[in-house]
């Protein structure tokens, strides 16, 4: 994979530089949306009824399993296992949520996931911004080699490191403990690359020069000049990293156990037959997804913009 195959959109795509647009602009409006604007007018055809119908079907497919999770979680076990399956919510939602919360020990899992995802997202944003700034604007020996090394780590599948990593964590006495999940992912190459792409374009060299003339050292420049400019992509990186860390499964499943799980690990317990009640299983699945769904309801537009702006994954 070469770097030019990564569709990171750079923030210079402001309306002024973009190709001409027609009167009605489909680009988002509002104060925070400048980041998510895209160059090029693309296709400007109005959607016809067929397009709306197809999109409606797509939205239905996307949302229905979640809706049905709620429906199943609100009925009782006998109703769920009858045909035709229920399509409307029943009266037992809160009951089942409460039971599932206890059966799957979700309280602890939620707290663990919050800690894990929060710490990973914060540290990824911090380190990715620092490294992104260095790779974008500082001149030092071996910069390009180091950058290629960082990007190269994206190509190595995490499975390759799992066995030695597990031995390391056991050696450190971190088996079944949260640091074992947090420490290996404190920063991601994708995050570094994402921030570098943004800062290369968005941070004018003159500002740094001016700071240097005033006698500021690199950290001071980072604090007073880079951070304020990098805030929008930092927010995007935070949210996307949070989602990934919350949903990460393979490594937490290996290194944690049911006495101290994250949410996805705790959810496997629901499928493992300890909980027989189908509607309780669905209640647990619903609980495990709710925090992220809430985040999507509030920040959905920003997350969509962030993903479209720079392919951040992993």
């Amino acid at each position: 994979m070469t770097t030019d195959s990564i569709p990171v959109r750079t923030p210079d795509a402001r309306p002024g530089t973009a190709p001409k647009k027609t009167g009605k602009d489909t680009a988002p409006r509002g104060r925070n949306r400048a980041l998510f604007r895209h160059p090029g007018a693309g296709r400007q055809h109005h959607a016809g009824p067929v397009a709306y119908i197809l999109l409606g079907i797509a939205a239905l497919f996307s949302l229905f399993p979640l809706y049905w999770t709620m429906v199943a979680a609100s009925t009782d076990n006998t109703r769920v296992t009858q045909t035709p399956p229920p399509f409307l919510p029943g009266p037992h939602l809160l009951d089942n949520l409460g039971k599932a919360w206890q059966d799957a020990a979700l309280g602890k899992a939620m707290l663990n996931s919050l800690i894990v995802a929060g710490v990973i997202a914060l540290s990824t944003v911090l380190f990715a911004t620092l490294a992104g700034f260095a790779f974008a604007k500082l001149r030092f020996k071996g910069r390009n080699v180091l950058l290629m090394l960082v990007i190269g780590t994206m190509l190595v599948p995490p499975q390759l490191g799992v066995v030695p990593l597990f031995m390391m964590m056991t050696e450190l006495g971190w088996g079944q403990k949260l640091p074992a999940v947090i420490f290996p992912t404190l920063v991601s190459a994708v995050g570094v690359f994402f921030m570098r792409q943004y800062l290369t374009e968005a941070l004018p060299d003159e500002l740094i020069e001016a700071g240097r003339v005033d006698g500021a050292h690199s950290l001071r420049i980072f604090w007073s000049i880079v951070l304020p400019i990098a805030r929008p992509p930092m927010a995007v990186l935070f949210m996307i990293t949070f989602v990934h860390a919350w949903n990460d499964f393979f490594w937490p499943f290996i290194v944690l156990d049911m006495t101290n799980p994250t949410v996805p690990v705790a959810l496997t317990q629901l499928s493992a037959g300890y909980v027989r009640d189908q509607s309780l299983i669905m209640a647990g699945a619903l609980l495990g997804t709710l925090p992220l769904l809430a985040m999507f309801v509030v920040f959905g537009r920003q997350i969509v913009g962030g993903i479209m702006q720079g392919a951040v994954k992993g």
Partner: peptide, 8 residues
């Protein structure tokens, strides 16, 4: 939205 749903 499905992307926000954990694999579990």
């Amino acid at each position: 939205t499905p992307y926000a749903t954990s694999v579990g």
